[in-house]
Design a protein around this nucleic acid. Structure first.
Length: 373
DNA sequence: AATCCGGGGAT
DNA sequence: ATCCCAGGATT
């Protein structure tokens, strides 16, 4: 198999597909994934939603979120007309919540600027919030069969190995070369299938560890395969130490089992999500509430510490439960602080560790003694 | 160019 | 425990 340009006879039509794409498409016709939820039906809205959910998130994780989301909000118009809190609630647990906020804003911009539809031109699409070069290309390829190259984690791995490209793909020079290679292989027809094919190859055959080279349609011309470098390519990100931050979370529960929650600030981690009062210590965590009343009438207990990992730092959380026995005075006019009954938590946009913590809480009927662990 | 932004699957 | 995933925005 030869990959690259063919010297064509002057009167032949232009070559529109290199052998890389031909072999890949032939493999895809037999082994590709054709039953993913966003493929049936494959509308621009559903493709867009799936692409955004799939940013830095694996297919298996996305599927149940996608199903729930399109059931609740079947169209772009539905999304544009729903409150942001509802979008965050549907996104809760998926992470990278700026994706949800951008998705929502994007839908409203489409209503205002694009006649209620997602644009079908590269420039207009990539200008929208949360849609970068690769996501725009994927949407145009999958929803409109337009010829644009994508470059995601799967494609990076396939191309780095196939061409024997060294260097960490995060380096701008390496990334630029990967984009060039991605464009060089992208055909002008069957683009939707090709785009799905190269991602499927990366996910199913050219896997990060133990690639199934014997099943690969491209192994004949794969440089990494030939040189025994499949385990070294692509080169990993240079790792660095991740710091640990300690955090106290305060669970204030009233006599009827309601929980006091605060909306997170608009920037930073968990932006605009509902979460527990938190701080470096019990004092700073309880700073915002009328502490005098609360502590005079409540029982305080320390719950088991737990860890939560982000990509760039680790959290050590000490949860403390403050059980209020007498009715708590109403909260002053503040849309960002409120009491929530346990049955209301399901639809709320909560950080995953907070959701887990609240779900594991001991029932309030039992006196809450400090754990003897 | 480096950092921030979550959560979880795979090993 | 470590890597990294259908990346994009910000600094």
């Amino acid at each position: 198999m030869r990959v690259g340009f063919c010297l064509c006879f002057p009167f032949e039509p232009a070559i529109t597909m290199d052998s890389f794409a031909k072999y890949l498409l032939a493999w895809f016709d037999v082994h590709g994934r054709s039953n993913l939820p966003w493929q049936h039906p494959r509308t621009p809205y559903r493709v867009w939603l799936s692409e955004v959910m799939l940013q830095q998130t694996q297919v298996r994780t996305v599927i149940p979120y996608f199903e729930r989301f399109v059931l609740a909000l079947p169209t772009l118009i539905d999304l544009a007309n729903t409150p942001q809190d509802r979008v965050l609630g549907l996104w809760s647990g998926l992470g990278y919540y700026s994706r949800a906020r951008n998705l929502h804003r994007c839908a409203q911009m489409c209503v205002e600027q694009h006649n209620g539809e997602l644009p079908d031109a590269m420039e207009a699409l990539a200008a929208l919030p949360g849609i970068g070069r690769s996501t725009a290309a994927a949407i145009l390829a999958q929803a409109h069969d337009q010829s644009h190259a994508i470059l995601d984690g799967n494609v990076r791995r396939v191309l780095a190995r196939f061409h024997g490209l060294h260097g960490w793909p995060g380096q701008s020079a390496v990334q630029a070369e990967l984009w060039r290679l991605a464009e060089s292989h992208t055909p002008s027809r069957r683009v939707a299938d090709y785009t799905q094919a190269i991602m499927d190859l990366g996910a199913l055959v050219c896997t990060r560890s133990k690639p199934r080279c014997s099943e690969c349609p491209l192994s004949g011309d794969c440089v990494a395969r030939r040189e025994g470098l499949t385990a070294q390519l692509p080169q990993p990100k240079p790792q660095k130490k991740i710091p640990t931050r300690e955090l106290t979370m305060l669970i204030v529960r009233d006599h009827e089992g309601r929980i006091l929650l605060e909306r997170r600030p608009p920037t930073g981690v968990w932006a605009r999500l509902w979460s527990l009062p938190q701080g470096d210590s019990l004092e700073s965590a309880s700073q915002s509430l009328s502490a005098a009343h609360a502590f005079a009438n409540g029982r305080l207990s320390v719950l088991p510490e737990f860890a939560h990992a982000f990509s760039h730092y680790k959290l050590k959380v000490t949860p403390m439960l403050l059980q209020i026995e007498t009715p708590e005075p109403k909260i002053a006019d503040n849309p960002d602080r409120d009491w929530f009954a346990s049955h209301e938590l399901a639809e709320l946009g909560l950080p995953a560790p907070v959701r887990k913590l609240l779900a594991s809480l001991p029932p309030e009927t039992e006196p809450c003694e400090p754990s003897t662990a």
